[in-house]
Design a protein around this nucleic acid. Structure first.
Lengths: 384, 384
DNA sequence: CAATTTATTTTACTTGTCAAAATATTTATG
DNA sequence: CATAAATATTTTGACAAGTAAAATAAATTG
């Protein structure tokens, strides 16, 4: 069982403790995994390790070099590719500008595989050495079917991307919504490593949410749940890019904030929200007012998430720090004011600034997870 | 496995089909359950049953008379008790007026057990013949601990009701939030009998939600999730009975609607929302306007539920038909307008009018479920 | 009545898991 | 330094859950 990953390094007896299996069973399973090369023992460096007496525990970890896995994120302007080893260590990463942000499916597949290939080559290996590719897309995606209801990266709706990828790629490709995959990354590598019920909220151009319940991504029946950005926070409210009114995203997304600022200023002074934020900090009352409404709306959205899910943790995951206006303590405090009050600590809300590779890392995390499961399945089938 | 319940009557081979177990296993398990008296075979009445040839399938059902289970709901003015048999058939039910809607815990326990006792006696048996009691409470409840953070029925916060009940009751008592238990009833006996991922919304004095994910009630980590009624649908909006502003309940709950009507009329013409609804249907523009806002807010809330959960089904479960203004098609249509649009049918929203015993039935359903699990556990322990 | 069909039960085996015993490897102690 | 004590891991033997395949049961068809 791959709860070795969540611990990083762990001795057999601790696995038994953590999983509830008996030491005997752990030995049986680990010896199989060792044989298959998926995990390896750690040779103890120093003799005087701990002050404990008795036979020393020998730690086990994932065999990093056993598999290489790529994560791909298609953004508006760039496509980023990150290759991780089986342990989750960065191997190589690259970004490529893309010509047009909306492509037809065939072009999309080609561009993506091209980017992966180039990244692999820059790391000294080829795409054929990969055991899996994770693909992170903005949009409405039925992950288990690999079916894309709609994505901002595609010119067509209802694309069976899974089938297209399977045909074109030398290794399995796993597709899901970008926010879901960030949640996966938080689960495997991030601040939610030991949690099984938490929620990740991503804010950038739009607002996304990833829900982990009982350790699994919750996707809804058609695969298009968790659309926090399009929950309505105002009757007949601001116009959203989805065409509807009153969506949270239409108050909190960067385009919404800039839109409001420019509607008053009349011209496009601020190129991005970061510059507006700086203006606000320098006392620009208009900027303060614009950002304040966004902040209050976000607080409302966060409170709603708590009221509905009562999760162990909420993570505000951000790639770029130009969105730092949305990660302030006062927003979290405001959210606390709007949560159903009981005499028990409210779920913590933590901010996690990942850096630019957040999205690609999510994709890779998902692929690692899927490849792990695949290899274990293969193993037990080969036992026959 | 007690998926016999969801089918009502089912032959062994169909159980094998439905559960994925082999026929051999089904035989083994059912023979144990038969022995324990929990299920029984149905003697075929007519010889010329079906046109199939071959050995006829013999159907199995739960042994109704094997256990009696009570469900209790404490409302504002009455306490209702419903006794079901193990199959879910009504045995006897009764309602009792209660003196004061808020009691201290000791009084609460006494009043409840008194009501259950009287109901049992009116059915010709005693409380000692019950195998379990389900208790449905409005409020914030950590069900698995039997801990009541807060309830409108109690004068105190943070009551360990489970412990109190265990001391006073001759049989196990299972406590949960009232909306969660309605969801349970829908799952066992209602319109969600074969579904594993659906949502129940109850509207009455307040707005409640029960979430079923993977066949289990989702409660959140502190047991106080699913508070749809207190999600905010308006920044700095109407005042809610919880003390906060902008809660859905503060627009949709009956007290909110009446409050608004009276704020304009100046006097209390309408005793309940039903009368306001009649006025609206008779062309009273003011009544129309008041109800219209409530309807639009409810639609918004429903759309948010779809956008977040993308469930198989949403059920609007109602006890009394005086709330029929909230069950209209136009509301459901309005909700559809505000849902993320994809080229796939949106989850259906169904209205289920239960009648007055809805809440008590939920409590009983939960208790049946828990007692079933308990008995099966006892059985496998006795196998040693 | 025999042949056929379908449902259920029995039998013999596989698999996953565990408790208990055995073994391995260390520290502490006289 | 040998031995005892402590702790981790592995081996062994047994049990429980589940299955495939064969056997049995109970109907229909011709």
């Amino acid at each position: 069982m791959d709860s070795i990953r969540s611990a990083g390094e762990i001795a057999r007896i601790d696995i038994a403790d953590a999983t509830g299996f008996s030491p005997a069973t752990v030995t049986a399973i680990t010896s199989e995994l060792l044989n298959a090369g998926l995990i390896e023992e750690i040779i103890p460096e120093n003799k005087q390790s701990q002050s404990r007496r008795g036979r020393p525990r020998v730690a086990i970890k994932l065999a990093g070099r056993s598999h290489l896995i790529a994560g791909v994120k298609l953004g508006h302007k760039v496509i980023s590719v990150l290759v991780l080893d089986f342990e989750g260590q960065d191997v190589v990463s690259q970004e490529f500008p893309i010509a047009n942000p909306r492509m037809d499916p065939a072009e999309f597949v080609e561009v993506m595989l091209e980017a992966v290939s180039k990244t692999c080559e820059s790391g000294g290996f080829t795409i054929n050495d990969l055991s899996g590719i994770g693909l992170s897309m903005a949009g409405l995606i039925h992950a288990t079917d690999g079916f894309v209801h709609w994505s901002s990266s595609l010119t067509e709706r209802n694309v069976d991307m899974g089938a297209l990828m399977e045909k074109a790629s030398p290794c399995p490709v796993f597709i899901d919504n970008d926010a879901n995959l960030v949640a996966k990354a938080e689960h495997l590598f991030g601040v939610a490593r030991n949690l099984e019920n938490f929620i990740v909220i991503t804010i950038e151009h739009g607002v996304g949410m990833g829900i982990i319940i009982d350790g699994k991504i919750y996707r809804g029946i058609r695969g298009c749940g968790a659309e926090l950005g399009h929950t309505k926070v105002q009757l007949e409210g601001a116009l959203c890019q989805c065409g509807q009114r009153g969506c949270l995203e239409a108050y909190v997304g960067d385009y919404a904030i800039l839109r409001e600022a420019h509607s008053v200023l009349g011209e496009e002074i601020h190129e991005d929200v970061g510059s507006l934020y700086d203006a606000a900090n320098n006392g620009d009352q208009l900027a303060v007012s614009v950002l304040d409404r966004a902040a209050r709306m976000l607080a409302l959205g966060l409170a709603n998430v708590v009221n509905i899910f009562d999760p162990e943790l909420i993570i505000l995951a951000g790639a770029q720090m130009s969105y730092r206006h949305l990660y302030e303590d006062k927003i979290i405090d405001a959210a606390k004011q709007q949560v159903v009050q009981i005499d028990a600590e409210m779920p913590p809300i933590r901010v996690h600034a990942w850096g630019d590779l957040m999205w690609a890392k999510g994709a890779a995390a998902y692929a690692i997870d899927q490849v792990s499961a695949l290899k274990v399945r293969e193993l037990s089938r080969n036992a026959d």
